[in-house]
Nucleic acid binder design. Structure first.
Length: 848
RNA sequence: GGAUGAUUAGCUCAGCGGUAGAGCACUACCUUGACGUGGUAGGGGUCAUAGGUUCAAAUCCUAUAUCAUUCACCA
């Protein structure tokens, strides 16, 4: 009862409610709590709740930050840090991987705010293009062509809106500190306008051209696609050895694609191939089709592969196209764009590609032209959106020149800082291997229309004027006549590749072309963040566009995150639907702060596995933070931060110096975007602070009558200072709980708008302080191995140590005696060692 | 086949020239006036393998193996 009075006296006037329960334990409880079995209540101020309720608090701060515009961007003269963050493709269910990649960037945004940057951090949604169309087709169960252009686009907008709301809610719940007023959608008129004017700029600079040229074709999605949209897939097929003859001499070609027999335009042999080179110059007779094609020599043929003889078709693969161009071969396209054989295939017209393959092999077997059939497993290129094998087709389409400027793209890539550094190699590799110009035409509906009509008389493309954008050529009419005088136009029906709009996100952010733009502020942007899989698309195309538009890099820094793995070795992805964790459920169960803890773990650029253990570890950390804050709050009730302090206690100086060391490392890591490593050292310090420092200082804080008010004040100053600084550093990871504690203990403004200020410390105590803590550890160990409580008194202890440690010991003697419950102590100076505990005698519990 | 990264305690990972680390799990103990979602300690590792550089290698180099990512190979 007496210590209860003591606490109440110490804290009077600021306690809201104290309750004494039956077991004589003090409890601090929040307002409006019903107490049962209480002896009395006292009125005062509200304190931190006994248990932190994440559901209530996270909802509260989410709303409050919105009301207070905590994360609003306004040009105010401060240095700007701008982030170009990937607008998620709105093509399906949100999964845990989304949280992972966005959280780390978000933490960087928060960190930069703490460093007094004016942070420009927008959010976008990539809702146009094939991914959205596929989603709608899947949901409706019908193909776009069956629904009709107008109706289909309406459905796309409805569907993407619905998913966007879910994304927005998720990111808000996760505490993403974006300025939602800056949010953009890639289907909005503003974005369409920017994409179209970007296109027109490239046309005017001769970097975009319209040409009938072979292109990659997906006969599932019925559109041409770009090299970057290819994926490889392992499939089982057969290697068919087929007999041909040349002027009566038989020779064999091995092929996986016998259905291309009707499309053969030439046969190739390596001129150095001693076995077969005599055939060069002759004519090959194609069985079944009964046509003759020339046998030609080219050193691209590998004599060791298959039979060393290759058939060249329109078009089986990349090499066919090269030869077609190089030798000016005839064109014999046998596939329709829907994936059927056409009239060029003669008797096989109307069959699907796979049916034709079977039928042709059967017919060849009848003619006894098949030598053998081997089963074969090999990789084929498929369209990443649908997984279907790609074909080649020839249609008139828009391309952006890549081949002629590869050197420049490489140079621009080198000007950018890549984090981690080795990711720049992926970019380099990709650029070096680019073989096609970028085909941006898509024979689809839901995308940015080309601002182009074609003159019916002279066939020339007729472009919209910049001031008329955005235009939809299917609805709008050109505002002038063609240079030939005609006013009859055919509108362009194709739409742009989704990456043609995604690659202008820096332009969207800077409101390119509008009057109140941010060009000055955002050229170049500070940071791009994305996962490694889209270096070849998003990063590459954005660099291309920025080079063509401004001849500069789009951003100074790129940070590449890893993936979330479902189980060891399997990447979580939308298409595989292998994510077992529902993001919303996880947030409800664990809190956004804890999920963020998990998302921050792991190094930049490395994959992480979803781990329940990591969540638990975060949960414990936050629980500890809450409790230590409660403890500190309790001891700060009579603290006046204006009170002058002449001298700090030894361990106070020690922990402040430790803190300062840690903060420097934290800043180093965060400047390298190593979010996980920054959290690591912060966490390590925090546990040291709780387990060692707080255990030492608590005696002083509780018993000023024993230690003196000065020593208590020194402790109060230290816990007050360090807790604030810790909360601030932690706020980038745990925005919700740190805000709650900060507003309760410090000021009623947001911790997220505070700025890191360097702490001036004395480092004299750093080293000796660590030794003293080691000594404390040894004494605790002694008690532990004697199976006795840490409160057991040490009746006698004898320590040998060098002068520095002895001096430190003497300076901190009161704290040490109290912490270890030492009755009698003997210190012996010995220069040759650090320290040695010669003797410990424990006074065993009198109860025992 | 090329490129890039990884391989450290049962699990998840940090360390990246100077005596092997953390959390979880396991074991024993401690109910200490913030916290039992706590505390103190203990057991557990030839740091994938083999060479090399160095006074010193988990750390640097070279091979090999395995895994992952990525590009290419579709004759």
């Amino acid at each position: 009862m007496s210590f209860l009075r003591k606490i109440i006296e110490g804290c009077l006037g600021v306690i809201r409610i104290y309750a004494l329960n039956i077991r004589e334990k003090i409890k601090v409880v929040p307002r409006n709590h019903v107490l049962i079995g209480c002896d009395f209540l006292l009125e005062g101020e509200i304190m931190l709740e006994n248990k932190y309720n994440h559901l209530i608090n996270e909802e509260k701060w989410m709303k409050k930050w919105k009301e207070e515009n905590t994360y609003q961007f306004k040009v105010d003269g401060r240095k700007i840090f701008s982030i170009d963050t990937p607008p998620p493709t709105v093509n399906g269910k949100i999964h845990i991987g989304h949280i992972f990649s966005y959280s780390q960037t978000e933490m960087v945004a928060r960190y930069k705010r703490l460093r007094d940057f004016n942070v420009f951090y927008p959010f976008g949604f990539d809702d146009n293009g094939l991914p959205s169309e596929r989603l709608v087709e899947k949901e409706v169960g019908k193909k776009a062509s069956e629904i009709g252009r107008e109706e289909f686009n309406k459905l796309c907008i409805e569907t993407t809106n619905r998913y966007e709301e879910e994304f927005k809610l998720l990111f808000s719940k996760m505490g993403v500190s974006t300025d939602w007023d800056l949010a953009y959608k890639t289907v909005s008129p503003e974005t369409i306008k920017i994409s179209q004017s970007s296109f027109l700029d490239l046309v005017s600079k001769n970097h975009a051209y319209h040409k009938e040229s072979p292109a990659l074709w997906c006969n599932e999605c019925l559109t041409s696609i770009a090299q970057a949209e290819l994926e490889t897939k392992r499939v089982e097929t057969t290697f068919n050895y087929i007999n041909f003859d040349a002027d009566g001499e038989k020779f064999t070609i091995a092929t996986t694609r016998p259905e291309l027999l009707p499309a053969i335009v030439a046969v190739f042999i390596n001129p150095d191939d001693s076995k077969n080179k005599h055939l060069i110059g002759k004519e090959a007779n194609i069985p079944l089709i009964n046509i003759k094609v020339p046998i030609m020599g080219d050193d691209k043929v590998d004599p060791e592969k298959g039979t060393g003889i290759v058939m060249c078709c329109t078009f089986g693969d990349q090499t066919d196209i090269e030869w077609w161009k190089k030798y000016n071969l005839p064109l014999k396209n046998i596939f329709s764009n829907e994936g059927f054989l056409n009239s060029n295939a003669g008797a096989y017209e109307g069959l699907r590609i796979k049916q034709a393959r079977k039928k042709i092999v059967e017919d060849l077997q009848e003619l006894e032209c098949i030598v053998k059939i081997e089963p074969l497993e090999h990789d084929v290129q498929v369209h990443e959106r649908c997984g279907k094998e790609i074909e080649y087709t020839i249609i008139k389409q828009w391309f952006i020149d890549l081949i002629n400027y590869k050197e420049d793209f490489l140079k621009k890539g080198e000007e950018i800082n890549w984090y981690p550094e080795h990711m720049s190699k992926r970019y380099k590799e990709w650029v070096e291997n680019v073989m096609w110009d970028w085909c941006i035409s898509r024979q689809r509906y839901f995308g940015v229309p080309f601002p182009v009509w074609y003159c019916q008389e002279c066939g020339k493309p007729h472009f919209a004027r910049i001031e008329d954008l955005p235009v939809n050529p299917l609805v709008d009419k050109p505002s002038s006549v063609c240079s030939c005088g005609s006013s009859n136009f055919i509108p362009e029906k194709d739409v742009m590749d989704t990456w043609a709009t995604s690659s202008v996100t820096p332009l969207i952010n800077m409101r390119y072309g509008s009057e109140n733009n941010y060009e000055k502020e955002l050229r170049p942007m500070s940071l791009r963040s994305n996962a490694s899989e889209i270096i070849r698309t998003w990063d590459f195309y954005t660099i291309v566009k920025s080079f063509y538009h401004f001849n500069e890099i789009p951003w100074e820094n790129v940070m590449i995150s890893g993936f979330v793995m479902a189980d060891k070795g399997e990447k979580i992805s939308k298409s595989k639907e292998n994510s077992k964790q529902e993001p919303f459920e996880l947030i409800n169960n664990y809190s956004a702060d804890v999920i963020r803890y998990w998302a921050a773990s792991g190094r930049l650029g490395t994959d992480i596995v979803f781990s329940e253990e990591t969540l638990l570890r975060g949960k414990k950390l936050l629980n500890k933070l809450w409790n230590v804050s409660k403890f500190i709050e309790m001891h700060l009730q009579d603290y006046d931060k204006e009170t002058k302090l002449d001298n700090l206690e030894y361990f106070d100086k020690w922990i402040l110096a430790k803190y300062s060391e840690m903060e420097k490392q934290y800043i180093n890591y965060m400047d390298e975007y190593e979010v996980g490593l920054a959290l690591n050292i912060l966490e390590k310090f925090f546990w040291n602070f709780c387990d060692n420092y707080i255990e030492i200082v608590k005696h002083r804080l509780y018993r000023p009558e024993e230690f003196g008010a000065e020593k208590r004040l020194s402790g109060q100053y230290t816990v007050y200072t360090i807790l604030f600084k810790l909360l601030q550093k932690m706020s980038i990871f745990f925005p919700f709980m740190t805000e709650e504690i900060f507003r309760e203990l410090y000021e009623d403004t947001s911790i997220h708008n505070t700025v890191i200020e360097e702490l001036i410390v004395n480092k004299d105590e750093l080293e000796t302080g660590d030794y003293l803590n080691e000594i404390i550890g040894h004494v605790r160990g002694e008690k532990s191995s004697n199976n006795t409580s840490l409160k057991t008194s040490v009746s006698y202890i004898e320590i040998e140590a060098n002068k520095n440690i002895i001096n430190a010991f003497n300076e901190a003697i009161m704290d040490l005696k109290a912490t270890l419950f030492i009755n009698e102590l003997s210190l012996i100076e010995k220069e040759s060692i650090n320290y040695n505990i010669n003797k410990i005698e424990l006074e065993f519990d009198k109860d025992k």
